[in-house]
Design a protein around this nucleic acid. Structure first.
Lengths: 195, 195
DNA sequence: ACAGTATTAGACTGTTTGGTCCAAAAATGG
DNA sequence: CCATTTTTGGACCAAACAGTCTAATACTGT
């Protein structure tokens, strides 16, 4: 019994990503936040807790979603190089889409808060090691399948590089609105796997 | 005549980079800023103007310094690949140095402000195109010197990639304190120039 | 000594901040 | 109808904010 929630909490969470991504965590005043979410002050506090709580929830939700997509693709059998190419081209596609790119910028605000919010620091550390390991295992499989040449001696370094490059594309997107630049960066990034 | 300035304005500017780099632009209160700079409130306003003015000055000073170093190395005759390797290994060295890395993080705060401070946006746009062009010209020379193989057909893309990678290393440093990870990323990044 | 400038600490101001509280309206299931 | 819950807007608060101003002190070249 009682009234039902009127808004979809994950839809609002997505709006929070956009707002925090645009203004940064500290740059987002409560008023800006509420305007962006389209809900009332009390609804925010009842549903998500404080501004910081909402921020952490949004960061985690965003990261989990993106990481899950990467893990899924890497776990598919078949060409690993094709899977990695898929992953990066998908990221580029999102960053070139005026509507979908907005929420990605919460990543930038989140990295900003790493030194000040231990919970976010710990979360990113765990996520990064999980992803690095997934890339590494995929690269081992690629090697066994004969997809890599003797040029790729250090698969650990390659795994770290791929995971880092994933994040850094968002930064590039914030600095340029030219889709060609993003495509160029992805193209050269992927060439690290060429023979 | 009259009393002389007691503090070196570029030394204080460097401290500003560290403070803004650590707390972000919005996250830096005037009190934190003054404590970090070690000067009085009035000295700040007399010497640099408002908080935003100081921030812009610090960003420009940092960027100009780093860009000049890159341009100098690229303009040297001799191996271009060696010059590029030098540039990236120097960046990694700074980011691994607990003392020198701090001021680099102002870059992150600066990118944060790109959508909100037109002066910074314009400045970065100009700086990026200048650097991209320098990398491109260097790569053309490398090609003419026989340093590149037929694998490197798109020198424009390679130039954009190198310039982007330069920035992105700072982001990587903010996410990990493991120097090995930075070395790995640099190693693979440079392998984009291998035959 | 003197005029000019720099430095400092602190008072002060009007605004904005994140967060709480309240009360009334609206929806829900029993 | 009724108890329960959500939603909403606005009142409210103490704290923090950026920036200005003042007044006293310290240094400098003439």
């Amino acid at each position: 019994m009682g009234r039902n929630k009127e808004f979809d909490t994950t839809v609002v969470l997505r709006k929070a990503m956009e707002v925090f991504g645009h203004y940064g965590y500290e740059g987002t005043s409560l008023q800006i936040l509420l305007d962006g979410l389209g809900i009332a002050r009390q609804s925010l506090y009842d549903t998500y807790g404080t501004k910081k709580d909402l921020f952490i929830s949004a960061v985690k939700h965003y990261t989990n979603e993106k990481s899950a997509a990467v893990l899924t693709r890497l776990d598919r059998s078949g060409s690993v190089k094709a899977a990695v190419a898929d992953i990066f081209r998908e990221i580029a596609a999102v960053l070139k889409d005026e509507a979908r790119r907005k929420e990605c910028f919460i990543m930038h605000s989140a990295i900003d808060q790493v030194p000040h919010v231990p919970e976010i620091a710990a979360f990113f550390e765990q996520d990064a090691s999980r992803l690095e390991e997934a890339f590494y295992q995929a690269l081992v499989r690629a090697y066994e399948q004969g997809e890599l040449s003797e040029r790729h001696s250090d698969l650990r370094a390659l795994a770290r590089y791929l995971n880092h490059s994933r994040y850094s594309l968002t930064q590039a997107a914030k600095l340029t609105s030219d889709p060609k630049v993003l495509d160029d960066i992805v193209k050269v990034t992927l060439s690290a796997l060429d023979s």
